[in-house]
């Protein structure tokens, strides 16, 4: 057994094996994507499948390059990303506010409880026509859709987390003579940060759903609009291209949120 650098041979072997395994997983992931793309492309070229219906990777690529060159790509992508972020921000902010008010007033929390249950269970897409009539066929209806989908879950998640604050921690603060506001800012809110971060992750996903659904219904721009439009004119390449763009955008946003969450966790000494 050589212990030249303080690490045993067995441990070195263990680490090497671990590294190999991680590499193997990553390589397989890349390979899987490559194989699917090649099969798709080959299948379309050799007419195993009808490219008019399933499109093909090179056509999607050309479509995206064309849209980028014409500048439309940024208009549509920008519109959808902007609306998603705004819907996400509004839903999270509003959810946080309502959950805080409910914590503040246990009486109203109990009054509102059955209404929340009903609102939570109703499919928000069914409210679409109402939003259009009330707010007009414009971006406001799209935002309303995104907010409607995300806000109730946020309220329920955060309010539950607020209520689960350790009563002894509140007792401790009260023994210091803390006001209700101090109890909220010193323990209830910071204690709910992990839940807040989880809610943020859920909300981002829901905001994408809400925005795309809103764009299906009313918009004249955005990836949701392109998908619906492409479907109506049977341009499946346009549909696929928009989906690919959506995949890329939502993955980037998710990674940003994930990274922020880890950063905050590290700051709080939990990592």
């Amino acid at each position: 057994m050589s212990r030249s650098d303080g690490v045993s041979e067995a441990h070195r072997r263990y680490l090497a094996q671990r590294r190999r395994r991680q590499l193997a997983i990553f390589a397989t992931q890349v390979l899987l994507a490559a194989v699917l793309l090649v099969l798709w492309e080959a299948g379309a070229r050799e007419r195993w499948v009808n490219p008019f219906i399933v499109s093909q990777p090179t056509r999607i690529w050309e479509q995206i390059v064309r849209m980028a060159a014409a500048g439309e790509l940024w208009v549509h992508l920008g519109a959808t990303v902007w609306r998603t972020m705004a819907g996400f921000g509004l839903a999270t902010g509003l959810g946080l506010l309502v959950a805080s008010l409910l914590w503040w007033s246990p009486f109203w929390a109990r009054v509102v409880d059955p209404y929340l249950v009903v609102l939570n269970s109703v499919p928000k897409i069914s409210l679409g026509p109402l939003f259009i009539v009330w707010l007009g066929t414009n971006v406001r209806a799209v935002l309303a859709m995104a907010v409607a989908i995300a806000v109730v879950v946020t309220i329920v998640m955060l309010y539950t987390a607020f209520r689960e604050t350790d009563p002894n921690k509140i007792l401790l603060l009260r023994s210091f003579g803390a006001t209700r506001w101090q109890v909220f800012t010193k323990v209830v809110l910071p204690g709910a940060v992990p839940t807040l971060l989880a809610a943020v992750k859920v909300n981002i996903g829901l905001a994408w759903v809400g925005t795309i659904m809103g764009e299906f219904l009313v918009s004249g721009a955005g990836l949701g609009y392109l998908i619906i439009y492409g479907g109506q004119v049977f341009n499946l390449t346009l549909v696929m291209s928009s989906i690919v763009l959506l995949l890329i955008a939502s993955t980037i946003v998710y990674l940003l949120v994930d990274w922020t969450e880890k950063y905050i966790a590290r700051q709080r000494g939990r990592a």
């Binding site: 350790d166 921690k169 007792l171 401790l172 210091f176 010193k186 000494g269």
Partner: peptide, 25 residues
């Protein structure tokens, strides 16, 4: 008042935990 469990706040450093009461007041 000192309770059975320490109830230190996980997101505060030891020093910040100890300053909690002073902060509140």
């Amino acid at each position: 008042y000192m309770l059975q469990q320490d109830h230190l706040f996980e997101w505060r450093t030891v020093l910040d935990n100890c300053l909690l009461g002073l902060e509140v007041q």
